[in-house]
Amino acid sequence: MKKEKAEITVGKNIYSELKKNSRAVWGMVIVSVVSIISFLYLSLVVYSDSTTKIFTMNDKGEMIPLSLVSAKNDKIKVIKANAEYFVKNFYDLDQYSLKDKKERALWLVSDQPTKIIKDKDAKGYYSDFLSINGLVQKADIMPDSWEISNVDDNPNVNFSVLVKRINGTNEDYFRADIQMRMTKVNINYPYNPFGFLITNFVESLSKVKKPTDDEIKTQDSIIVEQINPTITN
C-alpha cells in the first residue's frame, strides 16, 4: 500500500504583503500631509484677509472686500470728473472763453453728441454770447442728482445741471436734465484728460425759478458731505 505524500500549501508571500501595506500607508500619509498643508494655507489666507481687508455688503447682500469698493469708488470719481469737465465746457460760458470751451467740449464727444452741439450752435446757442454784451452763463451739477450705472463697462450717467444765465442785472435759471453714456478710450491730454468719450447725450432743458436760500444751503451741505452717487449694477 502506497503512502500518500502530504501536500504543503504555500501561503501568501509576507514580504509582498508588507510592501503592499507599506504603499497604502505611505499613500495615506501623503494625502494627510497634503490635506493638512492645504488647510493651513487656507487658514493663513483667511487670517490674512481678516487682518488686512475690511469686508462690506453690496446691494445684493454679498460680502466683498473694501479694496474692491475703493477701486469702484475711484472709477466713479473719474466718471464724475469727466462729466463735470464736459459741463463746464458746454454750459459755463462767456464771450471770452467761448471758442476754447466749444473746442474742448467737442473733443469729449463722439458723432451723436457732436450733431446735438452743432445743432444748438446753428440755433444761436453760442452766437448769443458774442452778440449780447456781458452775457455770462454759470453752471453747476446738482450734487443730489447723480445716478451712475455700469461702472465697470460703458458707464451710464444721469444728473441735473442748474444753469444761471446773467445779462446785466437780469438773471434767468434753467435746469438741464442730462443722460449720457461714456466709453473708455486712451487718455489724450489735454483734449480728453480723463479717458472717456461721451457716445450718447440727451438733454432736457426747462426754465426754473431762482433757488431759495434754503435750497442753496441744502445743496452746499451735500457738496461738503460728499455724498456718493446712486450706484446700480
Rank of each mutant, 00 (worst) to 15 (best):
F55N: 08
D119R: 11
M28S: 08
T218F: 07
I166C: 04
T52K: 07
D144F: 08
K2P: 08
D121M: 13
L40I: 03
M182G: 03
D220W: 10
I231H: 08
I148Q: 05
T52V: 05
V161S: 00
I8K: 08
K3E: 12
Q219Y: 09
D92F: 12
S97T: 15
M142E: 14
S160F: 06
I227C: 04
N21Y: 05
Q226F: 05
M180Q: 04
M28E: 07
D172P: 00
R175S: 12
F194R: 01
D214H: 06
Y91E: 15
D100I: 05
N73L: 10
W26M: 08
I216G: 00
N133P: 02
I178D: 15
V202H: 03
D213F: 00
S127H: 14
N13D: 07
P193Q: 00
S22C: 09
V69T: 13
I148P: 01
S70F: 11
T212K: 06
G11L: 05
F159Q: 11
N89V: 09
I36L: 13
N186T: 11
S206H: 12
S16F: 07
T199Q: 02
W107A: 10
I222H: 08
D100H: 03
P193R: 08
M63S: 14
K60P: 03
V33G: 00
A71G: 00
K138R: 09
K5G: 02
A71N: 06
N186R: 12
K53R: 06
G124W: 12
E4V: 11
E147G: 09
F39T: 11
K77I: 10
K3D: 11
K118Y: 14
G134S: 06
T52I: 02
T51P: 03
D59A: 02
E147C: 02
A81R: 08
D153R: 12
Y15F: 15
S16K: 05
M28V: 13
V34E: 06
K115I: 14
N154K: 05
G61K: 13
N158L: 04
S43P: 01
T169P: 01
I231P: 04
V29E: 07
Y91D: 11
T9N: 13
D153N: 03
K209A: 13
V33C: 05
K5E: 12
I223F: 12
T51M: 06
T183S: 14
S160Q: 01
D74K: 02
L44P: 04
N170T: 10
N158Y: 05
M63Y: 15
E225C: 00
S127P: 03
N233M: 12
F174L: 04
T51R: 01
L162R: 09
V109P: 00
V208H: 01
A6V: 10
L108W: 14
T56A: 11
T183Q: 15
D111V: 03
E171Y: 04
K88T: 13
F90Q: 10
I76P: 00
A71P: 01
L197C: 07
R175P: 12
I222W: 12
K209T: 10
N73K: 10
I76D: 09
T169Y: 14
G124Q: 11
I64G: 03
W146S: 01
F159R: 01
N156V: 13
L66V: 01
M182I: 10
S110W: 13
N89Q: 05
L42Y: 15
M63G: 09
D172W: 15
Y126Q: 03
L98T: 09
S110N: 01
L40G: 05
V208P: 00
K80R: 14
Y47A: 05
